[in-house]
Nucleic acid binder design. Structure first.
Length: 384
RNA sequence: GGUGGGGUACCGAAGCGGUUAAACGGGGCAGACUGUAAAUCUGCUGGGCCACGCCCUACGUAGGUUCGAAUCCUACCCCCACCA
């Protein structure tokens, strides 16, 4: 039902597409994150205008507020948030990790306290599938346990093994619910294993034994480990995972990370950076790396944020104005930078796709990365 | 003209004999953020230096008291309020 088609590959990099109930997603693709059923500060129309073909929402947050049954009653996430294209819901595994102080991980699941009102709840693999069923996204995620970036082998191993046991239970619950009336969905497994090549290999093999998946997610990266460790894991998995399945690298990333991962066979990404960093005043600019729009040097800059960008912000506003909005604390600034950053990543993925199809990806991505990094280095040097 | 209050770093504002290059806030300058408890958080903000220590210059101006003053005294110059 969600068959992945690759039209071209260059090295490990692939250009392709897959079809979901709410539309087609061309890859490589970047998914903006809309944790609470909203890509922060942006309307659905604005997100669509960035070219994003799929967005992410979060099980943990929507379970707590407004409640998954509320969303179900209102017709599911698509109707609720006025987004007509595909949606993926994350399972809450990341929240268990980032809100660890409020929770206790057990074999049957995770007992946690709401960050909103302190109320106690239990997430089991089955429960998380049920909640995601109610939310009604096209793609739902297995409930996993991700170890911290610097986790020693035994911690990574334990999380990896538990994630597999939970995957088994997620699959069974999903199969049972899929037999009942409801939205067409697909469940994705998550490969854990920390920075340990053998664990990642083992995770990949066993995940593929557990089910017949439409895609595979790679979790537990970009959580504090080194870049080189992340790239090595991707290379290990590129060799291990079948080419026929899209690979979703969860939580990544920054522009350079995106290209590095595409070069290693990743097809799908999500990251809060474009919206969070945008709200905090930083923007990615072609040829200049990352800039802070509040910087005094933009006070009289009448040029666009990114002359190479085609987004609404860059077509209509000056850097001087954007800087003013941030310095003055005006909400429009948050929106305009978020919009630009999302477009920047979506467009970067689009350009990668075009380069793969033109079979120029290798050189193009090397040049792009070299320019991005030298610009970043120049920024850092010039700032001091 | 009289009475009272006040003049502190870019701005506002504490301090009211030593531990004060001077709290705190703002402003300014930079940085961080990777499956979002984040429109958040963190630094720096008198100058100089063969700087983890030393030297200059600083609390309206000029003198004075004191071992030591932004802090006490005197004069002067400004500002504010009220009364004439």
């Amino acid at each position: 039902m969600f068959a992945f088609t690759t039209t071209r590959t260059v090295g490990a990099a692939r250009a392709g597409s897959f079809r979901l109930p709410h539309g087609e997603v061309r890859t490589p693709a970047f998914m903006p994150v809309g944790t609470q059923a909203t890509v922060k500060t942006l309307t659905a129309e604005e997100v669509e205008a960035t070219g994003a073909e799929i967005v992410l929402a979060n099980t943990y947050h929507l379970f707590l507020r407004p409640g998954h049954e509320v969303v179900r009653e209102l017709g599911g996430l698509h109707a609720f948030m006025n987004w007509r294209r595909p949606i993926l819901t994350d399972s809450g595994g990341y929240q268990v990790f980032s809100l660890a102080a409020l929770g206790e991980v057990r074999e049957d699941g995770v007992v946690f306290q709401s960050h909103i009102d302190g109320s106690r709840h239990l997430f089991t693999p089955e429960r998380v599938i049920e909640i995601q069923r109610a939310l009604g996204a096209d793609v739902i995620m297995a409930f996993d346990q991700l170890p911290p970036g610097g986790a020693p082998r035994e911690v990574a191993l334990a999380a990896h093994e538990r994630t597999l046991r939970w995957l088994d239970r997620c699959r069974d619950r999903f199969a049972a619910l899929a037999a009942e009336p409801g939205p067409a969905q697909t469940l994705l497994p998550i490969v854990q294993g920390g920075v340990f090549a053998d664990l990642r290999r083992d995770a990949a093999r066993r995940v593929l034994e557990i089910g017949d998946w439409d895609a595979v997610a790679i979790g537990g990266l970009s959580v504090g480990e080194s870049k080189s460790a992340m790239w090595e894991v991707l290379e290990v998995l590129d060799a291990e995972l079948p080419a026929s399945l899209p690979r979703y690298l969860m939580g990544v990333g920054y522009p350079d990370d995106l290209l590095e991962a595409i070069r290693r066979g990743v097809d799908l990404f999500d990251c809060v950076a474009p919206t969070r960093n945008g709200r905090n005043g930083t923007a990615w600019v072609e040829g200049e790396g990352q800039i802070n729009i509040r910087a005094g040097r933009f006070k009289l800059d009448a040029g666009p944020l990114d002359p190479a960008c085609d987004c609404y912000t860059c077509r209509n506003y000056t850097r001087a104005y954007l800087r003013h909005l941030f310095v003055a604390g005006e909400v429009l600034g948050l929106r305009l930078l978020s919009l630009h950053n999302v477009r920047f990543l979506v467009r970067l993925a689009e350009r990668a796709r075009a380069a793969i199809e033109a079979e120029t990806f290798e050189g193009w991505s090397e040049d792009w990365l070299a320019r991005y990094r030298s610009a970043r280095a120049a920024n850092e040097g010039g700032m001091a």
